[in-house]
Nucleic acid binder design. Structure first.
Lengths: 139, 139
DNA sequence: TCCTATAATGGACTGAGTCTAAGTCAATAC
DNA sequence: GTATTGACTTAGACTCAGTCCATTATAGGA
């Protein structure tokens, strides 16, 4: 369960109470939290933690590749701790809920060289949009 | 060139100077402008146009399906007037530039029913990320 | 234990976008 | 052509997510 903390320590991360709490919050619940939700949960364990620290720590985790940032169109970014299993996202346009999905096929291979405009293409994100069962009926 | 205006009129759009200018700005340059860039260009033709009107009008054009909103991760949304030819986007992680691309294959078909979690899936967005020639060398 | 670079704090600040209340005007009816 | 009216526009205040910065605290090595 503290695989994440071990990995971070192994990379020379200076381990502070704040960083530990943020990492634990992400590692503990495998859902997609916003920065504010992370702050909220972190505050329960460490009441004096500041918003800036949460943002800094999330940013570092993203840079280290331990966490993926998921931008959901207007709403706040969400942070996905499941960075080590490649996947894409299914987003509810009603409530913003996110599920991890694993489509077959490789969209990177589907982009012909002629369509790359000289870019060095590094990643693809596939976002499926629709309505979750709750929002579909509520519509 | 005023196909767009005709279509809008045909749908019962009340044609005001502001809406015409916004529609013309989008229709005129087939690039992906931010709301502020649209405002800037619209202001040249109609100095008293307000920010709120630009946002309202862009929102209506999106609702009508004449324009696509492209969220680019932290930066301001961009508006893509090329809504009638299905396509995806290639985004430069350096400068935010966007190109339209047309990958082969249909990612909607690549999402197995078992991975849909009861969602009614409506659309897929594929976003390729990389560095444009300028930003690749500048890095 | 001490030292110092690294991290945390909190509050001000920014940028993008939304909201609101009052004023304006396009399109229809007469 | 004029009156009417509900849709549209305006300016500016407001919100929300996120960043910045000067100051203070502390982890981890010497």
């Amino acid at each position: 369960m503290s695989d994440l903390l071990d990995r971070l320590r192994g990379r020379g991360w200076r381990m502070t109470a704040q960083r530990r709490v943020v990492a634990e919050v992400l590692d503990g619940e495998h859902v997609h939290l916003t920065a504010d939700e992370v702050l909220e949960r972190a505050t329960v364990r460490l009441p004096e933690i500041s918003r800036a620290t949460v943002y800094n720590t999330l940013g570092e985790l993203v840079t280290l590749g331990e966490v993926i940032e998921v931008a959901t169109d207007g709403r706040a970014k969400r942070y996905d701790p499941n960075a080590h299993r490649p996947h894409h996202h299914l987003v509810c346009s009603g409530c913003g809920a996110i599920r991890d999905v694993h489509p077959v096929g490789d969209p990177l291979a589907d982009l012909p060289a002629a369509e790359r405009f000289g870019f060095t293409v590094a990643t693809v994100e596939v976002t499926y949009r629709g309505r979750c069962p709750d929002c579909a009926t509520a519509a």
